[in-house]
């Protein structure tokens, strides 16, 4: 006769390891005074073009750097290097998302002096599902959605929209051509994440990007003021 099964309580967060690394990273970023922004979106929504523009426009006024995650190739890092900002490619191989340990390794390998940075951007692998569960130690998670993707994307991927702090509608220069319904998109974003801040912009012609950069500058100042208390 087999003995009676016994239930042993354990209570362990499966992502505990990632969460611990992310917490340590966040503390390190905060101590160095660098504001960290991560970008998530589906492949092809314009993350890299948007980041390239962001780095180029911020660089004359702020010290910026970027980490960019992809399954393969260093193409994105090469593109971003045009902005003259320090850029490091993280190749994930078969992994569909970035994890906190990869960010930590990349920062350590580059030997960046974080205290000499104002902003660090982390571009996640293009994927609207898997990155949602992984904290990277960022201060702000930005989810991108391009006008060519369809207004109901937030309803189809509520988890990632819910895990993000700010939504950005990209490629607004194409809005008219694809008959993009801006109001419906905003409604859908608010349905899955009430109160979420939304910016609509074009990395190509620069329209609307100033407002977003102003927001980033304000958040950097707030974060430093809070750290100084």
């Amino acid at each position: 006769m087999s003995p009676e099964p016994r239930l042993v309580e354990v209570r362990k967060n499966v992502l505990k390891q990632n969460d611990m690394v992310a917490r340590a990273l966040r503390a390190r970023f905060r101590a160095a005074g660098v504001f960290v922004v991560s970008l998530v979106s589906s492949p092809g929504s314009g993350k890299t073009a948007f980041l390239e523009k962001t780095l180029t426009l911020l660089r004359p006024h702020y010290r910026v750097a970027a980490l960019v995650g992809d399954l393969a190739t260093e193409n994105d890092a090469a593109r971003l290097a045009c902005s003259q900002a320090p850029v490091k490619q993280i190749i994930t191989g078969t992994l569909c998302h970035l994890e906190a340990a990869m960010v930590q390794n990349a920062v350590d390998e580059e030997e960046w002096d974080l205290s000499q940075l104002d902003f660090l951007f982390i571009e996640n692998v293009g994927n609207l599902v898997c990155p949602s569960a992984y904290d990277l130690g960022e201060d702000l998670r930005v989810v991108l959605l391009s006008v060519t993707e369809g207004e109901d994307k937030p309803l189809k991927y509520p988890t990632i929209f819910n895990s993000a702090d700010v939504a950005i509608v990209t490629k607004s220069d194409l809005a008219e051509a694809v008959q993009f319904d801006s109001e419906a998109t905003r409604r859908n974003i608010q349905a899955v994440r009430p109160g979420m801040l939304v910016f609509q912009l074009s990395a190509k012609n620069g329209q609307g990007i100033g407002e977003y950069l102003g927001f980033l500058a304000a958040r950097l100042a707030e974060s430093r003021a809070a750290a100084a208390v």
Binding site: S2, P3, E4, P5, R6, L7, V8, E9, V10, R11, K12, N13, V14, L15, A133, N162, R193, P194, G195, M196
Partner: peptide, 17 residues
């Protein structure tokens, strides 16, 4: 947007013999 529950990904118990 205030979520009280629903993000859980936890091992809660082990059935042993």
């Amino acid at each position: 947007s205030e979520i009280v529950q629903g993000r859980e990904l936890e091992v809660v118990a082990l059935e042993t013999q």
